[in-house]
Design a protein around this nucleic acid. Structure first.
Length: 844
RNA sequence: GCGAGCGUGGUGGAAUCGGUAGACACGCCAGACUUAAAAUCUGUUGUCCUUAUGGACGUGGGGGUUCAAGUCCCCCCGCUCGCACCA
């Protein structure tokens, strides 16, 4: 018997695919295309199991679609700008470029043995001047189209290192290196005008039918459209009125204070005048810029001394407070607080002893709010107290609508649509990103670089001896003539958010070497991405930014209108997890540093190991399995088969050594079966038809499962079919047919094994180029069905009938059934439910 | 804090539509082969009661809708993801 040797087989077929150029595709208008894309990786230097899973998933789709006759585009590239390269530069003194390109080379070398059906001729890295130069050209076009502007915005500021920090560099409100308390500081920064597309990005979600509902819902909530009322509170002192936005104007007669953001113009004015306010506002600005940090910070407030008039009740005055939880970026940066019906306002009022008045009560319960705000659904009817619009019993929504009409009629407020979505801050005060291609001229202002001077390349000789952006202290790079008047001027030293890089790479893949950012003919043929695959963690930002960018590209002539929704279908895969291990001192242990003993694990020196829960593989917890080791030990097919087999792809998968062994065993078992069939004497058998029927059944099932991303279910069916084939007494011809089909069905998951079986049994050409088998409908039909018989919903017996037996006949057979007669015990059934082909339920 | 998702045997999970819960795999146990072990093959395996037959219970917990609920609705618990400068 010939043994299966992945080490020899896998490189052999990878070379065969390469030599035949199977995966290098060209635009071919005569064929239907299919574009499969996995989210491109950050080149950290090592692939991890998450990558293996991501690319294995994409490869199943790519190979499956290719077998179905599509011209499949399946490219790969590198999301190569970002912070880790700069950190490495500071720690090791190596230029970020050098570090990044070395990592890319390492990762490519680890990926190639996976045997993915990737068109490597289209490979790109976002840190190539080739790539980011085109991005700069589009940035300039976005500027002329009015899609880019500058304004002030807050950043995390480390007052010791004198540098801007990323959110992940803020740990518990302190800078990760200096340990200093982080402050929120304003800087002038570049923005993309994504808010101009709020409505469009929202309504287009309805048509993204190939996207998971949860992602569509998250994006809708993120855009956060709301209908509300905008109006002003007149100040008692006669100064400029304070404008507020509210989605609950109906609760206005329960207002007990007006709150303004610490960054509100009034706060800033008071800050300059009063040391007390200045100290308070400084306190509010402590901590990071994340919404999470702001929302979970203890609620702080300070009375400004300003009083305002209630817009409806001329005799009422409200105090104006500065409150740290009010965001300047949302609405007008000012609110009114109605504590009875908002928990945050209530906590604030209890803390600062402000009045609390119910504006409505639950029907039949008029007890006033104490420490739990009464916040019923807007669709629930409640009783209103002296409501100015004249309502008595009405829902919240009815009251909101009535109030808006009332305010507009009285002329003190106007109905306003608001969006939570903020413009995209694209400036980064960092080196390793795409330089923003503009020059600051004293005379001409902010001028875009001339396109013929692009790319504005990052210098090769930057120095990373201190925190911050080396472009700021690199005069040779920074000094540049004004593109407009030619006078000495200075380049912008901010670089672009790396989300810009990933917002159009999918378009660049369609013509990766073109002189222009994109080529219309190639876009028209290849776009959209038919299937996009990546982590759920990108559900909002990356995908929303890409949707915006495609629209911007379309407005500036870089993308056809048909591709403004670039991803037809999206699949979000789960993480790869592994158990965690700790030594008696609590130190994390690598899986290879422990050994299994009775009912647990111990260390090499015999000390006990504490086993922790299975969580996402991460270096810090040391619960990582290196794909390279697995591929080396078992082969790529085993790794691919295992990551696909054990869990549905959208859910997390747990890597277990036993699971990997099981996958390896199965591959060997299939090969042994193939070899056995090859050696069988030819001949026929009475079992041939039964096997053929099973063969067509498995074709049908696997095809359906792959189409719906049920790869684990497809694999289970293939296990089942292996069991059937192993026991089959059919003749050689039928068995050979069966295993050839199985090779094809397994090919998307285990492409090397499939080719080896195919070749061993004399198949023509490559499986990678063979046409997907088609199930014969006639073979799928069973003549009989087995119906479970339930009595009062509990299964008691079953009944096998011909598949076309009419309902009345089934009813008769059920009532004549022995078990039914025995259990009915003479009582006649109340109801008899027959669901044809499914189930029978006798109700007593 | 806000938004979204997930929770099924000892383990990973299956169950197109509200219709036989536990497919398939791991593990465990038993058997075959072997001097022996490994490998391989065969069989058993949700829990509890019962000699068996058979029965009861069972999809994180509690309640509801339905002839019928893992699936739909409400409340609670636990875990995961995102929160705009990680990618």
């Amino acid at each position: 018997m010939s043994r299966y040797n992945a080490k020899v087989v896998e490189p052999k077929w990878q070379k065969a695919w390469d030599d035949a150029g199977v995966f290098n595709v060209k635009r071919d208008e005569s064929r239907s295309k299919y574009y499969v894309l996995e989210m491109f990786p950050y080149p950290s230097g090592r692939i991890h199991m998450g990558h293996v899973r991501n690319y294995a998933l994409g490869d199943v789709v790519a190979r499956f679609k290719a077998a179905q006759g599509f011209n499949v585009l399946h490219p790969m590239g590198w999301d190569a700008f970002g912070l880790p390269a700069e950190n490495a530069a500071m720690e090791k003194g190596v230029h970020p470029g050098e570090w990044t390109y070395q990592n890319i080379a390492d990762m490519r070398a680890q990926m190639k043995p996976m045997g993915l059906s990737i068109d490597w001729s289209r490979e790109l890295a976002t840190c190539d001047p080739e790539y980011y130069g085109k991005q700069q050209a589009m940035f300039i076009d976005f500027m002329s189209a009015g899609l880019v502007y500058r304004k002030k915005a807050v950043v995390n500021w480390d007052p010791v290192d004198m540098t801007v920090l990323a959110n992940e560099q803020v740990e518990a409100g302190r800078g990760w290196r200096s340990g200093a308390l982080v402050e929120r500081k304003e800087l002038t920064q570049w923005f993309f005008k994504i808010s101009a597309f709020s409505e469009e990005l929202l309504s287009a979600i309805d048509d993204l039918e190939g996207w998971p509902d949860k992602v569509r819902l998250m994006q809708r909530n993120w855009i956060g459209k709301s209908q509300g009322l905008e109006f002003s509170f007149e100040r008692v002192d006669g100064e400029d009125a304070i404008e507020v936005y509210t989605t609950r104007p109906d609760t206005l007669n329960g207002a007990s204070f007006v709150g303004i953001s610490p960054d509100h113009p009034i706060s800033k004015l008071l800050e300059a005048e009063s040391t007390e306010v200045a100290a308070f506002v400084a306190k509010c600005r402590e901590g990071g810029t994340t919404e999470e940090a702001i929302e979970t910070a203890p609620k702080l407030g300070m009375y400004t001394g300003i009083q305002v008039k209630h817009p409806i009740y001329a005799d009422r005055e409200l105090p104006v407070w500065i409150a740290n939880f009010i965001l300047m970026d949302y609405g007008t940066g000012a609110i009114f607080g109605c504590p009875a019906h908002d928990q945050r306002d209530l906590d604030f009022c209890r803390k600062y002893d402000l009045p609390v008045t119910n504006t409505f009560f639950a029907l039949g319960d008029e007890s006033p709010v104490e420490n739990n705000a009464f916040v019923p659904a807007k669709t629930e009817k409640v009783r209103w107290v002296d409501h100015f619009s004249g309502l008595d019993v009405a829902t919240g929504q009815e009251a909101i609508d009535a109030t808006i009409i009332f305010a507009e009629k009285e002329g003190w407020g106007k109905s306003t649509t608001n969006y939570r979505l903020r413009d995209w801050g694209a400036s980064r005060q960092r080196f390793w990103g795409c330089p923003i291609p503009v020059v600051h001229c004293e005379r001409c202002g902010v001028i875009p670089e001339k396109k013929e001077n692009l790319p504005v390349e990052l210098p090769k000789d930057a120095i990373f001896d201190r925190p911050g952006n080396p472009l700021n202290w690199h005069p040779k790079w920074r000094d540049a003539p004004c593109p407009s008047c030619g006078a000495p001027a200075q380049r912008e030293t901010d670089t672009m958010d790396t989300f810009v890089d990933s917002s159009w790479y999918f378009a660049r893949f369609t013509a990766p070497r073109s002189e222009t950012p994109t080529v219309n003919d190639d876009l028209s043929y290849w776009m959209n991405v038919d299937q996009y695959i990546g982590g759920i963690e990108h559900a909002i930002l990356h995908l929303l930014y890409s949707r915006f960018f495609a629209r911007g590209m379309s407005e500036t002539g870089h993308m056809p209108k048909t591709a403004i929704e670039p991803f037809n279908a999206l699949f979000t895969q789960g993480m790869v997890c592994h158990e965690t291990y700790q030594d008696p001192d609590g130190k994390w242990l690598n899986p290879e540093d422990i050994k299994a003993v009775d009912g647990g694990y111990e260390m090499a020196d015999g000390r006990p190991v504490t086993v922790g829960p299975s969580i996402k593989m991460s270096k810090s917890k040391k619960n990582v399995i290196d794909p390279e080791d697995i591929i080396d030990q078992y082969g790529a097919d085993t790794a691919r088969w295992f990551v696909l087999s054990d869990s549905p792809p959208e859910r997390d998968v747990e890597w277990t050594a036993s699971g990997a062994t099981a996958a390896w065993k199965h591959i060997n078992r299939v090969w042994a079966l193939c070899d056995k069939i090859a050696r069988m004497p030819s001949g026929e058998s009475t079992e041939d038809d039964a096997l053929r029927k099973e063969t067509h059944k498995v074709i049908h099932e696997v095809t359906v499962n792959i189409e719906s991303f049920g790869f684990n279910a497809a694999i289970a069916k293939l296990y089942g079919f292996t069991n059937i084939l192993a026991k089959s007494k059919a003749g050689k011809v039928a068995q050979r047919e069966a295993i050839m089909v199985m090779a094809q069905l397994m090919a998307p998951m285990t492409p090397h094994l499939a080719e080896e079986i195919w070749a061993h049994l004399g198949g023509k050409g490559l499986v990678a180029q063979a046409v997907w088998p088609r199930a014969d409908e006639a073979m799928l039909m069973d003549d009989t069905v087995t119906l479970p018989i339930q009595i009062n919903g509990k299964r008691r017996d079953e009944l096998t009938v011909g598949k076309d037996v009419p309902r009345e006949e089934v009813e008769k057979l059920v009532l004549a059934n022995e078990t039914v007669i025995k259990l009915l015990n003479g009582v006649s059934p109340k109801k008899l439910i027959v669901v044809p082909g499914r189930i029978v339920n006798v109700v007593v």
